[in-house]
Structures are given as C-alpha cells and as structure tokens.
C-alpha cells in the first residue's frame, strides 16, 4: 500500500534493460500505448499467424510461463523476478501458456485468421462458460463494450481448478483492443 518512491528499471533475462510499467499503468491498472508496444510481436511475425502476446509489464516473482512452453519460445528465467523473454519466431500460438499464467496476462492473437477477422484466445474464469458459436460482448482492457465476438472454441481444462481458454473471433481492427468477454447469463426457461 505504501507509495514506492521510484520506478524500477526492469531487466529482461538477456540483461538488456527494459523500462518498468508506465506511470499510467501503476495509477490506473491500464497499460499505456508504450507498455503495449513493447510486448507486441513484429509486423513480420504477425503475418505468420497465431502468436502469444505477454501483457506482463511488472517484475514480480513468477515464472510458470517459461516451463509451460513446449517450443522454447519463452526463455527460462535467470531471476524469477525477470519479465518474460519471448522468441516469437518459435511460438506457434498453441496457447498452453494462456491457461498456465497465474496473472491471466497472456493472449494469443492471429490477425489473419480469416479475411477481415482476427482470432483471440483468452483465459476466462467466469461462469457460465460460453458455448461454441455463441455471440458474446467484446470488452476492452477497461471493460468497455467495443463490439461483438463469436466464440469458436472453448477449451475446458481437465481439472476443474485449471483455467478455461476461450477462442473468439473479432473484426481485425479490434485484435489489439479486445481482451475480455461478457457472456449473458440466460434467464430463460
């Protein structure tokens, strides 16, 4: 609760200095454009399909993403407080890390899922889970309704305490905006 006096200079595992979270993020919980730019895969990589986006901006003691990746795309942590270091070329967008991240901070984005349509895989820990083909409300990082999303798949975990991953499609221009969904609770009968 105490006000920290300075902004930590964050390092990645490579030792390269990487700025810490923006003031805006620390004040409001919403990442700034600069925060987001740092974790966005290259335009070139995005043309090759689904890829993980690690919206992890603060050094905290946490490393399960690295061991969750079977493709070596997320490097092992030298210091458990490091920010994750991602090799987007080795990522195939499988989404294992999405279900594993304790912070629910990883999303898979495929800008070229279908013409004019992007695919997003996101962790979803609310009930009811949506059904396949259901149209749900798409929300941005501030919980604002920004459009509609269609559910294309719901990955239910083997253990009920694990995290479901919901695959949605959204208009391509919302690929970097939509990060949550609202599923209407049916009151029918």
């Amino acid at each position: 609760m105490s006000a920290e006096t300075r902004r930590p200079e964050d390092r990645g595992p490579s030792g390269a200095r990487r700025p810490g979270p923006s003031e805006a993020l620390i004040r409001t919980g919403l990442p700034s454009a600069e925060d987001l730019e740092r974790v966005r895969p290259s335009a070139e990589r995005l043309t090759h399909g689904a890829v993980a986006v690690l919206e992890c901006f603060q050094r905290i003691p946490c490393d399960p993403c690295a061991s969750s990746c079977h493709h070596g795309a997320i490097a092992a942590f030298a210091d458990i407080n490091d920010l994750p270091s991602m090799d987007a070329e080795r990522c195939n967008g499988c989404g294992l890390c999405v279900a594993r991240c304790p912070g629910l901070a990883i999303f898979i984005v495929d800008e070229h899922h279908a013409p004019g349509e992007a695919l997003i895989k996101l962790a979803y820990e609310f009930l009811p889970l949506p059904a396949r083909d259901q149209v749900v409300t798409a929300l941005d990082r501030a919980g604002r309704e920004v459009g509609q999303a269609r559910v294309v798949r719901v990955q239910r975990p083997k253990e009920k305490t694990d995290t479901p991953v919901v695959w949605i499609t959204v208009p391509k221009d919302l690929a970097w905006t939509v990060r949550h969904i609202k599923v209407e609770v049916s009151h029918g009968a």
Binding site: P31, G103, H180
Partner: peptide, 11 residues
C-alpha cells in the same frame, strides 16, 4: 498489476 488488469477489463 496483472491482478489490477483482471478487474479493470471486467469493468
């Protein structure tokens, strides 16, 4: 901040 992001995107 990852916990903060979870509640923010829920509105």
């Amino acid at each position: 901040l990852v916990h903060a992001a979870k509640v923010r995107r829920a509105g």
